[in-house]
Amino acid sequence: MKNPFEQLDRILEHRVRLQIMSVLVANETYDFNSLKEVLQVTDGNLAANLKTLEKEKYIIVMKSFINRKPNTRYKVTEKGRSAFKKHLTALEELIRMQR
């Protein structure tokens, strides 16, 4: 059997990034301000973690304008979705082992 510790995704071992991915797999897209509200984190913290996820190609960024105001929306990629699933399975496995 594979060691579940090795199955954990190092990018998602961070609480805020894990929560961003949770929101994005549960919703088609989510914008920056709504994400900030749901996760109750600072602008800087959220932006930095979104950047990391983007660089890893777990999410894509969609910039547009609504009433001339910039609106940034995020969407999970297939790579991100399967990484999230794999990480979740590993978490479940670890909890089961330690029970």
Partner: peptide, 10 residues
């Protein structure tokens, strides 16, 4: 925290 984020976002 996954559960909380999903629920609060939906």
């Amino acid at each position: 925290s996954i559960r909380l984020a999903m629920e609060r976002s939906v």
